[in-house]
Structures are given as structure tokens and as C-alpha cells.
């Protein structure tokens, strides 16, 4: 028998997975375009704005379900976590927007050296983390969620390496600031992927873990 709550939960899940699609696109194209020097600012802004709106919708829907059905146990864990995950997905969009904004505002590839190799490496890892986090969300797969921690550690190591060596780099301030900001945004996206992983483990097992 379908419970009344189930229809609401299905709707909430669909909203979140739609957010996942939008967020994945925003992150992917902002990073890829930064590497190739293409301006995608307008498209990413559109996607980011969509995520901001959808985040509000998810929260509203979640509150409606809490008010109407007083969920407990796994239902409650799912709803609580979806509110958090929705916020993480919205942050994906916001950092993607930041990357495309910095690219538009500061980067000048005619005068700068190529984007740092470190950004390319971090970018690939971050895109894969975003994809894994969304895939784990689809099936509440806690094993997949746990795998995020390995990549997160690699991203952090690259971030620290960049900080340690940034002052020795032979490049203009403009280029250094651009690269450093983007490295920082990538590191933040990776953090949010890890938060999503933690939420998925909580949904699946009830265990409150800190993967960071």
C-alpha cells in the first residue's frame, strides 16, 4: 500500500535529482570553459539562478511534508538530508558561477600563461566528485558516497600544494589571483560533494559521519 507521504517523497526526490542535473551541468561547463578560455558566464548564471529557486522549492516541499505527515525514522532522515543536499547542490551552482565570473572578469588569456596544470587536474577530479555525489544520491548508495573521501583528499592536497607554491610562480598578479580563486572554488565544490556523501550515508545507515 502506498502511504500518503510516499507521493510527497517521490516528488521531493524528483526535484532534487533535477537540481542534480542542473548543478552538474553548471560545474562541468564552468570548469571546461575556464580551461579552454570560452566565456559561459550567462549560461552558468542562468543555471545558478535556477538552482537558487529550486533550493527554495525543495525546502518548502520538505516543510510541507514535515507539517502534514510528521515523518519519523528513515522518512525523517531522508527529508532532513534532502534539505541539506539541496543546499549543497545550490552551492555547486554558486561556485560554478564564481568560476565563470572570475573568468569573464579577470582572466585574460592573451596575456596570461595557460591555466595551471593543477587546475586541470583539480577540475577533472571535482567534476567526477559532483557526478559521483549525484549518482550516490539517486540510489542512496553509501558505499559510493564513501568513495568521495579519497578524491576529496586528492583535491585538498592539490589545493595545499598550490597555496604552498603560489608566491614562487612567475606570473602577473592578475593571473595569480584568477588561478588562486578558481583553485579555491574547486576545493569548495569538492567539500560540498563530501557533505552530500555524508548525508547519503546518514540516510542509508543513520550513522552521522564526518568524511572530511
Amino acid at each position: 500500500m502506498n502511504r500518503l507521504l510516499d507521493t510527497g517523497l517521490e516528488r521531493l526526490t524528483a526535484m532534487l535529482l533535477q537540481m542534480g542535473k542542473v548543478a552538474e551541468e553548471a560545474v562541468r561547463i564552468s570548469i571546461e570553459s575556464f580551461m579552454t578560455g570560452v566565456d559561459v558566464y550567462e549560461r552558468v548564471e542562468q543555471l545558478s539562478d535556477t538552482l537558487v529557486r529550486m533550493n527554495v522549492d525543495v525546502e518548502d516541499k520538505a516543510f510541507e511534508l514535515i507539517a502534514k505527515y510528521q515523518p519519523v525514522a528513515s522518512d525523517l532522515r531522508i527529508i532532513k538530508s534532502y534539505i541539506k543536499i539541496s543546499n549543497d547542490l545550490e552551492r555547486y551552482g554558486r561556485y560554478a558561477w564564481d568560476i565563470s565570473f572570475i573568468h569573464k572578469r579577470l582572466a585574460n588569456f592573451e596575456k596570461c600563461e595557460d591555466p595551471l596544470a593543477i587546475i586541470e587536474e583539480m577540475g577533472e577530479k571535482v567534476i567526477s566528485m559532483v557526478q559521483v555525489s549525484i549518482e550516490a544520491l539517486k540510489t542512496h548508495n553509501s558505499e559510493l558516497a564513501r568513495k568521495l573521501i579519497e578524491t576529496e583528499n586528492e583535491v585538498d592536497a592539490l589545493y595545499f600544494r598550490h597555496l604552498d607554491h603560489s608566491t614562487e610562480m612567475p606570473m602577473s598578479s592578475r593571473c595569480l589571483i584568477t588561478n588562486t580563486l578558481v583553485v579555491r572554488y574547486l576545493e569548495r565544490i569538492a567539500d560540498h560533494a563530501t557533505y552530500i556523501g555524508e548525508s547519503i550515508i546518514y540516510i542509508a545507515t543513520g550513522e552521522k559521519v564526518v568524511l572530511r
Binding site: R3, L5, V72, A73, S74, L76, R77, G206
Partner: peptide
């Protein structure tokens, strides 16, 4: 018990997934 029941029967009863 209400946040993270350890037994599957409890989970089913609390969430109304019984029978």
C-alpha cells in the same frame, strides 16, 4: 528510536509501512 530505529520491524511500524 524515532530517528534511527535499529530493528526493521520498528522502522516499518513507525513509518506506517506495515502490511
Amino acid at each position: 528510536v524515532f530517528e534511527n530505529p535499529q530493528n526493521d520491524l520498528t522502522e516499518k511500524y513507525l513509518t506506517g509501512k506495515f502490511g
